[in-house]
Nucleic acid binder design. Structure first.
Lengths: 154, 154
DNA sequence: TAGAATTGTGGGTAGCTGTGGGTAATTTTC
DNA sequence: GAAAATTACCCACAGCTACCCACAATTCTA
């Protein structure tokens, strides 16, 4: 069965073990293209979470970043966050990646973690932080949220 | 019988089994386009029900989501909530899809379920909830309802 | 109308998935 | 250079899922 490649959807609950390893949902691994080399790129997200990219996608982002104007402050902060902390991380036979203590601290990760598919990337969250963040954003800007919903959801 | 592709109409009663599987009406499966890969995308509806899209339709939504800039926090929240509850779900040889416990809980599904064709998507309801919701909506805003009827029904 | 094909529902099971832990190899520290 | 710490790789295993088959009921067909 061939479903669309490099597309991540859904929400999963996984546990971070004592060694700092966390499982990537089997479904996500299956939706990777063959030449992805059992490897992800793991980095800080712009929110308080960890972003995980398939290498293929990451390479596209890198080339796009080169074309971004360095004059814009938001671009600079994106580059600083996303690129500076990016680590190429292969997953083991069981499908787990190893998170560095620095990343775990950045995302406030404890034992229980939520993994969310974000179409072309994956997010790893502390459940409480996730809840708070989305609540905040919605409260700050409900109209944009509704506009987007009307435009995009059929 | 050939009706236009990806078009769902009619109301059916099906039963959710102990494993969380539910049948998609054969008529609906037949009206799918060939390159639909025996796959649906299942997610939370805006009402208290489950929405089921042919994957072709969902891919359109995905493309739109990909075009949203990841630099805006509200965009990120929107993508998160649009994708988070969505599961890409192939149906088995008997034509059934598997619903996650989370979705079943969201829609208050019990054994008996109503499946409704909604033109480009399918809705799965608890019969009681469906009845109550429509009664409510009609009571709240009968004029809009009539306007729509006038505009759309031939 | 009778037989054939399809459809809806239930259940069993092999193999996979998620999680923990052990050990050898490698790096770091003194 | 030896001991300690860290890392990478391997194995184990319970629980679950995907896949298969069965079968009654319904629909189609000739």
């Amino acid at each position: 069965m061939t479903i669309s490649k490099n597309t991540f959807t859904g929400e999963y609950s996984y546990s971070l073990d004592a060694k700092g390893r966390i499982n990537i949902p089997a479904k996500f691994r299956q939706s990777l293209s063959k030449n992805n080399d059992n490897t992800f790129v793991v980095t800080r997200g712009l929110d308080t979470c960890i972003w995980v990219y398939p290498i293929i996608i990451w390479q596209k982002i890198e080339t796009e970043l080169k074309n971004l104007s360095a004059l814009s402050a938001i671009n600079r902060s994106f580059i600083r966050n996303a690129v500076r902390y990016a680590a190429i991380t292969p997953y083991d036979k069981q499908g787990r990646i190893l998170l560095t203590p620095s990343l775990i601290q950045y995302a406030n990760l404890e034992k229980e973690a939520i993994i969310i598919g974000m179409v072309n990337k994956i997010e790893i969250w502390n459940p409480k932080t996730l809840y708070e963040t989305d609540k905040q954003n919605l409260k700050l800007d409900p109209s944009t949220f509704e506009d987007l919903a009307e435009k995009i959801i059929l």
